[in-house]
């Protein structure tokens, strides 16, 4: 049985796994990371979305062995202590969840979406979240939340950017 080393939400695990074990089952059944749920078996619903080395993946479509040597962030690893991630806050503020089953995956996918476009239009958000299904909200408030989260994330990172710009200006 292959032995893998994987970091999940900042903790390093060494596990002997069957080659066929899905990453999502490693997370849920072996590591007790039940914050990441499973909504389908075909990679359609996106409920199980996590970050694998900074990129969103559907953890039902990734084998645990493929995560060997990698860093996984789940919904449980987003907050800093009691300080929620801006996207978590935005989902709460905009009432972007009802039953909440799709929410972990939706939040992870939304954060990933902003890597490409930190200030997405409504259309960009809708297309970017195509792989994450929600049955409760009709998506209106999810779209609002993602755009709100994006604004808050860019405001938060603005001081860093300003600093960077300053450095760039000084360099020549």
């Amino acid at each position: 049985m292959p032995r893998i080393t994987v970091t999940v939400d900042g903790i390093t695990y060494q596990e002997d796994v069957e080659p066929r074990l899905l990453l999502v089952h490693l997370l849920r059944d072996r590591l007790g990371k039940t914050g990441t749920p499973i909504g389908c078996d075909t990679g359609n619903c996106g409920a199980c979305t996590v970050m694998l080395d900074g990129m969103s993946v559907k953890s039902c479509s990734v084998l645990a062995v493929q995560a060997d040597g990698n860093d996984v962030v789940t919904i449980e690893g987003l907050a800093h202590g009691n300080e929620w991630h801006p996207m978590q806050k935005a989902f709460h503020e905009e009432h972007a969840l009802q039953c909440g089953y799709c929410t972990p995956g939706m939040i992870m996918a939304a954060i990933d979406l902003l890597r490409d476009d930190p200030d997405p239009s409504e259309e960009t958000v809708r297309e970017g979240l195509e792989g994450n299904l929600c049955r409760c909200t009709g998506y209106c408030n999810i779209v609002r939340a993602v755009r709100r989260g994006a604004r808050e994330m860019s405001q938060r990172s603005m001081p860093e950017q300003a600093e960077q710009t300053e450095r760039e200006v000084r360099t020549p």
Binding site: R28, G32, K33, T34, G35, T36, P37, I38, T74, I75, E76, L78, A79, W84, Q88, F91, H92, E93, H95, L97, G100, Y101, T103, P104, I107
Partner: peptide, 21 residues
């Protein structure tokens, strides 16, 4: 009012039936 239910749902601390061990 923003919902009381959200805290556990947005942070992944929910008890879905399949979570029960």
């Amino acid at each position: 009012r923003r919902r009381k239910e959200d805290a556990r749902l947005v942070t992944g601390r929910t008890t879905w039936t399949d979570n029960i061990q």
